[in-house]
C-alpha cells in the first residue's frame, strides 16, 4: 500500500510535467488553431539555455527566471517571424511549418551544444520524506509544486488581467476583438510567448531525471499530446487533469503490469490516446470539434 501511494506521487510529478507542456499546446491550439509540433524542441532549447547560464556560474533560481524571460521573448519572436506569414493559410501549411521548426531547432541544439548527454542540476534536495510509512521524494514534490504554481499563475493571468481577458477574447472571435481595438496579432504572439514559458518550466523540471540531450522532450511531447487530447484539445483545465491522470496511470501500469514494463510506456500512452479519440473525439472536457472547411 505504501508503495502504491509512492507510485502515485511520482506519477503526479511526471504528470505535472506533461500537464505543463500539454497546456502550452492547448494555448497555441486555441489561438492559432494548430498543434505546434515544435513545442518540445522549443522547451529543449530553453532548457539548454538554462544549462549554459548555470554552467557560466549563475545559481539555479536566477538562471530559472532568466530562462523564462528568454523563453517568452523567443516564443513571441517565433510567432512574429515564422508563424505570422502563414497565419491565414490552410492548417496543413501551418503544421508543416511547425515541423520545419522542430527540425531546425533540434539540429541547432545539436550544433550548439553537441549531441552528448549532460547532467542538469535540480533545485531540490535529493532526499525523501516519510509520511505514515510512505516515502515521498522531495524531488517529486518540488516538481509538482513548481508546475502547479506555474499553471495557477497562468490561470490567474487569464482570469484577472485585462490582457489575459483580451487574449481569451481573441481566441474566441478575432474579428470582433479587432473592432474593440484589440491588436490581435500581438495577442497571438503573446500566446506563443506564454506557451514557450510553460515549455521551459516543463523542460527544466524534467531535465534532472531524463538528463539533457537534444531529443529529451520528444517522448514528453507525446505524453503531452496524449494529455491534451485526453482533456479535450481546446480545454486548459482538461490539459492539466489529462496530464496528471496520464502520469499516474502510465506510472502504475508500468509498475504493476509486467507486459507494459518500461519499454511499452509510450505505446501504452498511444493506445490511451487512440481509445479516447475513438470513444470521445472531443476529449473529456473539450467542446465538440468544429471542422474548418
Amino acid at each position: 500500500m505504501a508503495e502504491f501511494a509512492q507510485q502515485i506521487v511520482s506519477g503526479l510529478a511526471s504528470g505535472a510535467i506533461y500537464a505543463s507542456l500539454a497546456l502550452a499546446l492547448v494555448l497555441i491550439y486555441r489561438s492559432t488553431d494548430v498543434i505546434n509540433f515544435a513545442q518540445g524542441e522549443m522547451a529543449t532549447f530553453t532548457t539548454y539555455t538554462a544549462w549554459s547560464l548555470m554552467h557560466h556560474g549563475m545559481s539555479y533560481w536566477p538562471a530559472f527566471a532568466l530562462t523564462l524571460a528568454i523563453a517568452f521573448a523567443g516564443g513571441v519572436a517565433v510567432e512574429r517571424v515564422v508563424i505570422r506569414p502563414v497565419e491565414r493559410r490552410p492548417e496543413l501549411v501551418i503544421v508543416i511549418v511547425t515541423i520545419g521548426l522542430l527540425l531546425t531547432i533540434n539540429a541547432t541544439i545539436g550544433w550548439i551544444w553537441g549531441a552528448d548527454v549532460k547532467a542538469f542540476d535540480s533545485p531540490f534536495p535529493n532526499n525523501t520524506w516519510d509520511v505514515h510509512s510512505v516515502t515521498i521524494s522531495v524531488q517529486d514534490v518540488g516538481t509538482l509544486g513548481v508546475c502547479l504554481l506555474t499553471v495557477f499563475l497562468l490561470w490567474g493571468f487569464f482570469r484577472f488581467t485585462t490582457v489575459g481577458l483580451a487574449m481569451r477574447a481573441v481566441a474566441i472571435n478575432p474579428n470582433a476583438s479587432r473592432l474593440l481595438a484589440v491588436r490581435v496579432g500581438w495577442m497571438l504572439a503573446l500566446g506563443w510567448g506564454l506557451a514557450a514559458v510553460l515549455g521551459a518550466v516543463a523542460g527544466m523540471m524534467a531535465a534532472p531525471t531524463v538528463f539533457l540531450d537534444p531529443s529529451m522532450m520528444l517522448v514528453i511531447l507525446i505524453y503531452a499530446f496524449a494529455a491534451a487530447v485526453l482533456g479535450g484539445i481546446d480545454s486548459p483545465a482538461g490539459a492539466v487533469v489529462g496530464g496528471l491522470s496520464l502520469g499516474v496511470v502510465i506510472n502504475l501500469l508500468s509498475r504493476y503490469v509486467n507486459f507494459v514494463g518500461t519499454e511499452l510506456r509510450l505505446p501504452t500512452a498511444l493506445a490511451v490516446l487512440l481509445v479516447v479519440l475513438i470513444i470521445r473525439p472531443q476529449g473529456l472536457f473539450g467542446h465538440k470539434v468544429v471542422r474548418r472547411v
Binding site: V82, I96, V97, I99, G100, L101, L102, L103, T104, I105, N106, A107, T108, G110, W111
Partner: peptide
C-alpha cells in the same frame, strides 16, 4: 547542418 538546412528550406 543538414537538419538545419532541411528545416529552413521546409519553412
Amino acid at each position: 547542418a543538414p537538419g538545419v538546412v532541411f528545416g529552413v528550406v521546409l519553412i
